[in-house]
Structures are given as structure tokens and as C-alpha cells.
């Protein structure tokens, strides 16, 4: 069924497959090493003869990580931030994407261009004004100061990507719904929303990642209330440039990476097709 594959000669294909496997190993190696180091006992991590396996896996590094500070709490904080961002941006983007794909109104093209341009804005450059904005809004030191900007920053891309999904729902369906006497709101939430849901999930990956990974905002906005800290900040506590606690860093990294991985694996099908849609539009 793969046209390319059918005609590839055998030795060539074997070579291709061998190199694919080899590359897969290389690409996966950093992750493997991360997990491995997280499970290595203390003495083995900082050894001048690093081994690609361990005979005595231990949870010491994890215990250390969760014992130090309130790592569990930071984990929940991160989850809360990412969760709020995902839900809020998905809902807002869904409405906006519906507006720009299923209605015709003045400034529509202009708005679309704005959404596109908004994706280009270097978030980091806005840290300065956002800091003052959050201060004036009394949001510094709260998770709100992380949630709000991330909603804003993930919206343009989410809208852009969702457009394809909303467009894909045939207009006939909409017409039929109205003929059946459905209100606009009913169509929106009970017909369109479920149909676009897969796309929403794919879109969410990006907002989830941007919120989950955030390092700069957490560093700049969470000033003194450590109970509001998030994972990337906690991770860097173990990473002291002078004397990094590699075991702790790797264990914390593992803990931080796993939710994203799980999320990715769950939505990867939607993601790939969604990307196809977003990218081609």
C-alpha cells in the first residue's frame, strides 16, 4: 500500500530500516539516559565511568526530589496551570475559530492576519511589560500570573489550527440543524463542539506544552511565595551550575517529562492529522 515501499529493492530497504532503527536509538538515547540516571544509585551517577545500565536501580533520587521542598505541590501547581490554560484556551479558541470560519464579516481577514502575526511575537520580550501588568493587577506571586499570559500566547496558534477542524464540518450539517429548528447556540455546543473536539485535543498539546514548560514567567512572576512555584523552577533548584545534583536533576526531569509524554501518546493521532490540517491551510 505504500507506493514508495513497494518498489524499493530489498538491500536498499534493509539499509534504510537499519538506519531508521539506528537513528531511533540515537534520538531516544537522551531520554533513556535521563530515566536511567534517575534510577541509578547515588554512587553510580557521578562516576567517571558511566555505564549504560544499572544493576541496582534505586528510588533514592526520586525520594530525594520529593523529600526536598514540596515537589509534589509544585507538580500539582504545574498541572493546575497547564490544565487551566488548556481548557480556557481551547474554549476561547473554539469560539473564535468558529467566528472566523463560519461567518463573514468586516475585518475578518485582518483579524486572521493578526492571529498569524500574534504567533510571531517573542513571548520573552514581553516579560517586562507583563511583569508590571501583573503587578498592577495584583497577580504577582499567584498562579494566575502564569495562567493568564499563557492563555494569551497559546490562543493565536490554537485559533489558527482549529480553523481547519471547524471548516471541515460540512455546511450542510449546519443548514440542516437550522432547518430542524436548532438555535445557533445549540448548534455550536451540541453539534459543532463534539465534532471539533478531536481537533481541540490536538490543539491542546501545544498550549499544554507551552504552559507546562514555562520557565521564564515562573522565574519572573513567582517572587516570594514558594508554595506557588512550578516544576521547572523546582528542577533548577537541583541544577546548581557549580555543583549540579545530577541524580536529583534527572529524577525531577523524568517526573516532569512523563505527563507530557503521556499526553502526547494519547493525542498523537489527532496531533499528526491536526498538524496536517493546520499547516496546510
Amino acid at each position: 500500500m505504500n507506493p514508495l515501499r513497494a518498489r524499493v529493492r530489498r538491500p536498499g530497504r534493509l539499509a534504510a530500516e537499519a538506519s531508521a532503527l539506528l537513528i531511533a536509538v540515537v534520538v531516544a538515547f537522551p531520554l533513556y539516559w535521563m530515566v536511567l540516571s534517575a534510577f541509578k544509585p547515588a554512587g553510580e551517577i557521578e562516576s567517571s565511568e558511566p555505564r549504560p545500565w544499572t544493576l541496582a536501580p534505586s528510588l533514592d533520587s526520586f525520594r530525594h526530589v520529593f523529600g526536598q521542598q514540596e515537589f509534589g505541590r509544585y507538580f500539582l501547581n504545574s498541572l493546575l496551570v497547564a490544565g487551566c490554560v488548556v481548557i480556557a484556551s481551547a474554549l476561547i479558541a473554539f469560539l473564535a475559530a468558529t467566528a472566523v470560519t463560519r461567518f463573514r464579516f468586516r475585518l475578518r481577514t485582518t483579524l486572521l492576519i493578526m492571529f498569524l502575526v500574534a504567533q510571531m511575537v517573542p513571548v520573552e520580550a514581553l516579560t517586562i511589560p507583563l511583569f508590571f501588568l501583573m503587578r498592577d493587577a495584583g497577580q504577582l506571586n499567584t498562579l494566575g500570573s502564569l495562567i493568564l499570559p499563557h492563555i494569551a500566547f497559546s490562543l493565536p496558534f490554537a485559533i489558527w489550527m482549529l480553523r481547519g477542524f471547524v471548516k471541515a464540518v460540512p455546511e450542510a450539517l449546519e443548514e440542516a440543524a437550522y432547518i430542524d429548528g436548532a438555535s445557533r447556540a445549540r448548534f455550536l455546543w451540541q453539534i459543532l463542539f463534539p465534532l471539533v473536539l478531536p481537533g481541540l485535543v490536538a490543539t491542546s498539546v501545544f498550549s499544554f506544552i507551552s504552559a507546562w514548560n514555562d520557565f521564564l514567567f515562573a522565574k519572573s512572576f513567582i517572587i516570594s511565595d514558594t508554595s506557588q512555584s512550578t516544576l521547572p523552577m523546582a528542577l533548577l533548584v537541583f541544577y546548581k551550575p557549580d555543583d549540579p545534583d545530577w541524580g536529583g536533576v534527572m529524577a525531577a526531569s523524568t517526573v516532569m517529562t512523563i505527563p507530557v509524554l503521556v499526553f502526547f501518546v494519547l493525542v498523537q493521532r489527532r496531533l499528526v492529522s491536526g498538524l496536517g490540517g493546520a499547516v496546510k491551510d
Partner: peptide
């Protein structure tokens, strides 16, 4: 330095 400055900038979250 960054932490302290941030604290001066936002009295509400300063120590």
C-alpha cells in the same frame, strides 16, 4: 539581584 528587585517592584510579594 533579580529576586530582590522583583520584590522592590511589587511590595505585595516582598518579604
Amino acid at each position: 539581584a533579580q529576586r530582590v528587585k522583583a520584590a522592590f517592584n511589587d511590595p505585595a510579594s516582598a518579604p
